[in-house]
């Protein structure tokens, strides 16, 4: 999966991980959770109930979303669980005091 994602990083033009979760799932069991784009419907594993609920909530924006589309979005949300890779409890070394690269600052008057 890491190799797959490297490939994606090279090809996507922008979002790197936004692509191909379904294809990646089909080819290689993910070593880490995939990122965001909606995989094709018909993947073997059903989406989680939480993802289905979040996906169904998108009908408030597009009431015409079909059940299949909601399921596709839900699979994308599941595959987008990159927090497992990024968060501090999975051995990636983030500690309480580690600050984000973007910080709020108050300008000092000249």
């Amino acid at each position: 999966m890491a190799d797959r994602r490297t490939f994606l990083g090279a090809v996507s033009g922008v979002a790197t991980t936004l692509l191909l979760a379904a294809a990646a799932d089909a080819q290689t069991p993910p070593a880490s959770p995939a990122a965001s784009s909606p995989p094709a419907a018909g993947s073997a594993k059903p989406p989680s109930a939480a993802a289905l609920a979040a996906a169904a909530a998108m009908r408030r924006f597009d009431p015409a979303l079909s059940d299949a589309e909601v399921e596709t979005i839900a699979r994308g949300i599941d595959d987008n669980a990159v927090g497992a890779v990024l968060n501090p409890h999975r051995g990636r070394g983030l500690r309480n005091g580690d600050e984000p690269v973007t910080r709020f600052a108050v300008a000092v008057p000249r």
Partner: peptide, 23 residues
């Protein structure tokens, strides 16, 4: 459909991504 998936990104994941970015 990708916009809906992106819309569901947890805020804590975004912040952790920016924290990992520092490191």
């Amino acid at each position: 459909l990708g916009g809906y998936v992106a819309y569901a990104t947890p805020a804590v994941d975004y912040i952790d991504a920016q924290r990992q970015r520092t490191k």
